[in-house]
């Protein structure tokens, strides 16, 4: 197991390099001069601009720029933005907001998605099942910003139940954006859990459990649910990363100062070091969460062994 983890982490290095280079190149390729844009309409001496360019290695070819950047990263230096603020600082102030949002969404989708999925699966073909199925189709097919604005209007403006935007109300501020961000994945988890449960309810070993004279609650709780959860867990591993990415839109709608907003602003300003820094964090979240899921998978299913 330990060897497996180490191997997975080593495999992550090329993924990490590839992803950061691609992003670096993409921002590099954006037309326009970020340094001149920095001063807007003001007249600035070419020598001043050049000094800034030199300072940020902008006169070097792409590969050299990237090389210098990565060298810094491995020395623990993520660089600065054009205004001199350290990227690390930007990330550490924005990241907790996004993380809280993602964790809120993650908890919501797990709790509600699983409960709805299990009830729909157990009551297959009945009212609850149809209700769940219709509402999940509804949730999956609505774009996030439509859902977001609708929720703001309904729960914020009309009913005044929840804060509309911003972070002024502590954890309450995360409830509505959390639900909006979770909506799609929650619907997917519901369907996944339902399908998997229905399939497993017909498995031979569930029949065996009944034939053993076990109470129905135990047949379901012990013998069916655990196996049914395996595909859901797999999905959750990818989903945590997905949520971080999805947070970019949600943060925009709800005006939350998270990674999403920081990235958006950095892309507009062509601040390569900020964009790549954020992406690096996201790549690491992806790598770690998929690794965790694979390990959890082995705990849930003894047929899987990692060497």
């Amino acid at each position: 197991m330990g060897r497996y983890v180490i191997r997975r982490l080593i495999q992550a290095i090329p993924v990490f390099l590839g992803a950061t280079f691609l992003i670096y190149a993409a921002v590099f390729a954006i037309p326009g001069d970020p340094v001149r844009a920095l001063f807007g309409e003001r007249q600035v001496a070419e020598s001043t601009l050049n000094a800034i360019r030199e300072d940020f290695n902008l006169n070097d070819p792409l590969l050299v720029q990237y090389g210098k950047y990565i060298q810094g990263v491995f020395q623990g230096d993520l660089g600065r933005n054009f205004r001199g603020r350290p990227v690390w600082d930007i990330i550490t102030s924005a990241f907790p907001v996004t993380l809280r949002l993602a964790v809120t969404a993650f908890s919501i989708e797990i709790v509600i998605g699983l409960i709805a999925g299990v009830f729909a699966g157990l009551g297959r073909g009945r009212f609850i099942d149809n209700l769940v199925r219709v509402s999940t189709i509804f949730l999956v097919s609505i774009p996030v910003f439509v859902l977001g604005y609708t929720a703001q209007l309904l729960f914020g403006v009309e009913l005044r139940l929840l804060p509309i935007a911003g972070l002024r109300d502590g954890w309450l501020s995360y409830v509505m954006p959390g639900f909006v961000l979770a909506a799609g994945s929650m619907a997917y988890i519901t369907r996944l859990a339902r399908t998997s449960l229905v399939e497993n309810l017909h498995a031979d070993y569930v029949r065996t459990a009944t034939a053993k004279g076990l109470p129905r609650s135990r047949v379901i709780g012990r013998h069916t649910l655990r196996n049914s959860l395996i595909p859901v867990i797999t999905y959750l591993g990818f989903n945590l990363g997905e949520l971080m990415v999805g947070a970019i839109v949600t943060e925009g709608v709800f005006n939350l100062p998270g990674i999403g907003r920081a990235t958006f602003q950095a892309v507009l300003a062509q601040e390569n070091s900020v964009v790549v820094g954020v992406v690096t964090i996201l790549v690491m979240v992806f790598i770690v969460s998929t690794l965790l899921v694979d390990l959890l998978y082995a705990v849930l299913d003894p047929r899987i062994r990692y060497e």
Binding site: D204, Y205, R207, T208, A209, H223, R226, N227, L300, D301
Partner: peptide, 9 residues
């Protein structure tokens, strides 16, 4: 089929 009749986990 004893393999499928036993719970794999």
């Amino acid at each position: 089929d004893a393999l499928s009749a036993l719970n794999p986990v």
